[in-house]
């Protein structure tokens, strides 16, 4: 039992967080709970604190919408929060799509699909292109371009307010990640992930690698959804500074040698280590 906890503690905590958040949002609509109202696009915490998706607000700005005060406060709350705990902590701890893509990724490993297709035919920088494109389309069409196609809000909204054909979006992403592209949606396509990667560059909570403990088993790289951020494994003792790290902590719990762990970023160190 203790090894189970030790090997999956963060995974269990993440699933707990993701499902609790879904439940709280669902309860707000179904039973009038007031802990978390709305959905991931914009919500109210305890019927008081506004929280808003900064990327959606950015699209609104590009589309030429007037930004209301509540929205701006909400954006500030969320931005500061993720600046502190790691931009893409949203991706691994909050976003409901994460459960779908993790499942696809798990199956991919179990079915050994990676051995048939070990080279991924797309660049992970695609998400930044899509991010830029979404803002351009928002500006030209006068509409929040990604918000009208986002499977994230489609699924989350679907779970809270009624799914419709939203299950199709879930299935598409699952199949895409399973058969077309490893870490396809979250690691290549999703512009919201790209956006939080940019915010996450500055975040305080980081995974830290201690090279002296590392036995080069590479379990961390196998399990990491953004393996390029672990470029220092077995080479140097460095914190993972790339914003693309989702702080999912899978690498920490699969490591048997205590070579990885969370740490608070020392701001002074950053200059030394570059990135």
């Amino acid at each position: 039992m203790s090894t189970l906890w030790n090997n999956y503690r963060y995974l269990i905590l993440r699933r707990f967080t993701q499902i609790s958040l879904l439940l709280l949002y669902f309860g707000a609509n179904a039973w009038g709970w007031t802990i978390l109202m709305g959905n991931l696009s914009s919500s109210r915490f305890l019927d008081f604190v506004p929280m808003s998706d900064p990327y959606a607000a950015l699209q609104m700005l590009a589309a030429g919408a007037a930004l209301a005060t509540d929205l701006l406060i909400g954006v500030a709350v969320i931005t500061v929060f993720y600046l502190l705990i790691g931009g893409r902590a949203f991706c691994s701890w909050v976003c409901p799509i994460n459960m779908i893509t993790d499942a696809a990724n798990y199956l991919r490993r179990k079915l050994e699909i990676d051995r048939v297709q070990n080279k991924q035919p797309a660049s992970r920088n695609m998400r930044y292109w899509i991010l830029a494109l979404s803002l351009i389309i928002s500006a030209i069409m006068g509409i929040t371009a990604f918000e009208f196609i986002s499977p994230i809000s489609m699924v989350h909204r679907g779970i809270v307010f009624g799914l419709g054909f939203g299950w199709a979006a879930m299935l598409i992403i699952f199949l895409f990640d399973l058969f077309v592209l490893k870490n396809g949606w979250c690691g290549h396509v999703c512009p919201l992930g790209g956006f939080y990667s940019l915010i996450g560059k500055f975040s305080l909570i980081r995974v830290h690698h201690s090279e002296e403990n590392c036995t080069l088993c590479m379990k961390c790289k196998t399990v990491c959804p953004e393996r390029q951020v672990l470029h220092m494994i077995g080479k140097e003792s460095l914190p993972v500074l790339s914003g693309e790290c989702t702080n999912c902590a899978r690498c920490i719990e699969v490591c048997d040698d205590d070579a990885l762990g969370f740490s608070i970023r020392k701001l002074a160190d950053n200059e030394k280590t570059g990135e």
Binding site: M37, G38, S41, S42, S138
Partner: peptide, 11 residues
Amino acid sequence: RTCIKCGLCVE
């Protein structure tokens, strides 16, 4: 372009 689709009005 302004509606953020949060559903607070619905709730």
